[in-house]
Nucleic acid binder design. Sequence first.
DNA 1: TGGCCTGATACCTGAAAGGTATCGCCATTT
DNA 2: AAATGGCGATACCTTTCAGGTATCAGGCCA
Lengths: 303, 303
Amino acid sequence: MEFRRLKYFLAVADELHFGRAATRLDMAQPPLSRQIAALEADLGVQLFDRSRSQIRLTQAGLVLQDHARQLLDRLDVAYRETKLVGSGGAGRLRIAFVGSASHGLLPTLIKSYRSFYPEVELALSSMNNAELQRALVSREIDIAVARPELRDEEFRREPLCRERLILALPDNSRFAAQDQVRLADLGDQTFVLYPRRPRPSYADVVLGICEREGFKPAALELTQDFQSAISLVSVGVGLSVVPESVARTQRPGVIYRPYIGHNPGTALTVHARLDNRAPQVMNFLEITRKFARKGQADGRASS
Amino acid sequence: MEFRRLKYFLAVADELHFGRAATRLDMAQPPLSRQIAALEADLGVQLFDRSRSQIRLTQAGLVLQDHARQLLDRLDVAYRETKLVGSGGAGRLRIAFVGSASHGLLPTLIKSYRSFYPEVELALSSMNNAELQRALVSREIDIAVARPELRDEEFRREPLCRERLILALPDNSRFAAQDQVRLADLGDQTFVLYPRRPRPSYADVVLGICEREGFKPAALELTQDFQSAISLVSVGVGLSVVPESVARTQRPGVIYRPYIGHNPGTALTVHARLDNRAPQVMNFLEITRKFARKGQADGRASS
DNA sequence: TGGCCTGATACCTGAAAGGTATCGCCATTT
DNA sequence: AAATGGCGATACCTTTCAGGTATCAGGCCA
């Protein structure tokens, strides 16, 4: 049984006339008659009552007509849904990102993607860089937004934004009164850094900056992620060095200050597996590229 | 899109291996690969992720897999239901019969048909011969059980049973005490006969018998059908001449007596349109034939 | 009875599906 | 790093089957 036959059958059942049905199907009458005969032979069932000049559907024909209509409708639905998902207009996209990305451009990027593809279900989660890498490799996620970028030959990378580093201080810090703080003056402070594992990590980037400024922090507190680090800062455990965008979201007990000293900045990068050509992923990367260009332009304009 | 492709697709989706899927489908691998490729081209959608040695379904593939399974299942249902109805195992059969048939062999015949074909919905109705003829011609019914048989070249006929005529008397009749009644003695009685229209009808058959016995009923009461006639007998309006089988069902106010005199008997005949080859009809006629043979044999045995 | 309408049949052509052989890529092995 | 094996894709041929044209056959009407 093939869909074509069902279509032919429905045409004849509608017209109750082989000639007209053939015209409607844009074909000649003989092959249509043959297809219907084949369908009847296939089922071993009389579908049309040809005893008089006017053709009529038999009971079996009426039953098949019902089913055929439904089948063709459902085929159409299957077609359209598959195409929609296959073109990225629907489906699912699993995005994970570092905690420090939840304040800057990323939320806007995600909102933009959602406005373009509202039917795509987003599964968002937050991880540190090491977890991002593992999850992307094992295909638990489709997109990893990492800081700094993940070193893996299997990944496709799209830079999202680059930003300067600033200090996050407890509001009772003795540096809170200064508009700018010299990094070199912070040798006696406790630095709250992250992630603890695996090393080397972003923590080591900050320690490298300190070293370049000629000191080594008096004390170190290592947390697993950015969120915990800021929490510790807010309760006065120590200070931290964080991406500038974090300052956009104020938090009780924490104040942000630019610093004087080496500032290599930090970049947020969007990753996907090279072999993941899913349209949802490609579309997300496409929008990421647009955002990166726009962000860069904005950055230039404001600098 | 054709069902074959969906079947192929499901095999590959199940096996996630073209070679094994081809084996399962009892075909070579290259044409299978080509069919899947054609399906993907047709949809304009990637269904399998072939980037690694292990094949995987894409999101679109998963969506199509769901739909394809349902479509094939529903096709199977459509197939089976159509075949069932087409073979007479289900569907609908519209039977109409003369009122006087509701007491004899017909109910048993119908019960027997129902036991063989319990899924066939029966639409039963009662009509007089003239209505039966009209309804059968206009295809409002499939089967007409008439008495006597309908004269129409377009009908197929199966004799169901032949029976003697007996008298139906009010229980207060002066003939009620007799075991047998001479028909010729009934000249002064009111005869309740049916149907009133169209004439000549069964009423005229009875009048013919009277004439042959040398009398003409003193009074005549014509009703439209057998049921009304018996009702009039039960309230003492007059007597009637009815098929023997009617006596099997007793009714208050009515007693039945064989009569002495000309008794041409009466036959119940099952009719269907010659051009109605519906399996439900053919099966009913088949069972009717069996019943007629059996009824005839029974009749011989008991005579 | 002849003409017409309509579906069925005969026969041919072309498109498409299936088969065999083989290629090319990747992954594993030594 | 080259060899090997597994697997899907491609090339090319064969076969099958759907579609087209011409024509037949039966029912209906004049």
